[in-house]
């Protein structure tokens, strides 16, 4: 298992009910796991525990068998792709070069080899021609791809993505999803949060449906994401319809 989470309990404030009330997850090599759930169900808190931004009360997070890794060690095992906000004026290549940091000796600047690998990562997501463009002057989809490239430059086996398709148009959503599927086909393990159940179907992923800090259902997308589960999860009527052999979730009426 590349990632194994056992009995994770986390409180934002001492004395208050836990935001995560016992989470178990497992992710193998080349697998995609979609984390679904309504706002406030604990998806973001779980990601923050995984990336070491938040400490948890009980339970354990094992990445490639290791727990309690230092931040540098963790950076060699797990790469995090945040939502593409930010208004940095740095060139895309400089943004992607940051991904080489855990591989660089302390106090060193990126070497020619680091620059080559960063360029390669940009090419991998198909935007190498934008290497010299400022991050805040490219489109939202390009920014998201650049952040994926930064994570690829880290050369980890595990990718954790926080709603990578949020605020992207349909075309860019498809491009980002296609990139995720290709990476998994190359053996990368991907944990991705999303508010769109059809993305789990498109990716052919396993899903974990979270609600109230617990995992309500887990398994293959086609088995877990039925109309009943989705309606319960989001507390609104949801239908699952099939088109061209792929199911999709939709809200039938308001």
């Amino acid at each position: 298992m590349v990632l194994k989470v056992e009995g994770l309990i986390c409180r934002r404030m001492p004395g208050q009910p836990p935001v995560l009330a016992g989470i178990d997850l497992a992710l193998g090599a080349g697998e995609i796991l979609c984390l679904l759930g309504p706002n406030g169900s604990g998806k973001t808190t779980l990601l923050q525990c995984l990336i070491g931004a938040l400490s948890f009360e009980r339970g354990c997070v094992r990445i490639e068998g290791e727990t309690e890794a230092s931040s540098r060690r963790l950076a060699l095992q797990l790469a995090y792709v945040p939502q593409a906000a930010g208004d940095s004026a740095l060139a895309l290549l400089d943004v992607v070069l940051m991904g080489r940091t855990p591989h660089m000796p302390p106090l060193a600047l990126p070497s020619r080899e680091d620059e080559r690998l960063a360029y390669e990562a940009l090419a991998r997501v198909g935007i190498e021609r934008l290497a010299e463009h400022p991050f805040n002057r490219v489109s939202g989809g390009e920014r998201q791809l650049a952040l994926i490239a930064r994570a690829l430059a880290q050369r980890t086996r595990l990718l954790v993505m926080d709603e990578p398709t949020a605020s992207l148009d349909l075309g860019n959503q498809a491009r980002v999803l296609r990139t995720i599927r290709e990476l998994a086909a190359d053996g990368m393990s991907v944990l991705v949060t999303t508010h769109q159940p059809e993305h789990a179907f498109l990716l052919g992923a396993r899903v974990a449906a979270m609600t109230g800090g617990r995992i309500a259902a887990a398994g293959a997308a086609r088995e877990v994401l039925c109309a009943r589960t989705l309606s319960d999860l989001y507390a609104t009527p949801v239908d699952v319809v099939e088109h061209a052999g792929i199911p999709s979730a939709c809200v039938p009426r308001l």
């Binding site: 931004a53 060699l76 945040p82 940051m98 940091t101």
Partner: peptide, 8 residues
């Protein structure tokens, strides 16, 4: 958070 996940 991002800098931390980059090992800083």
């Amino acid at each position: 958070d991002e800098a931390r996940t980059l090992g800083i």
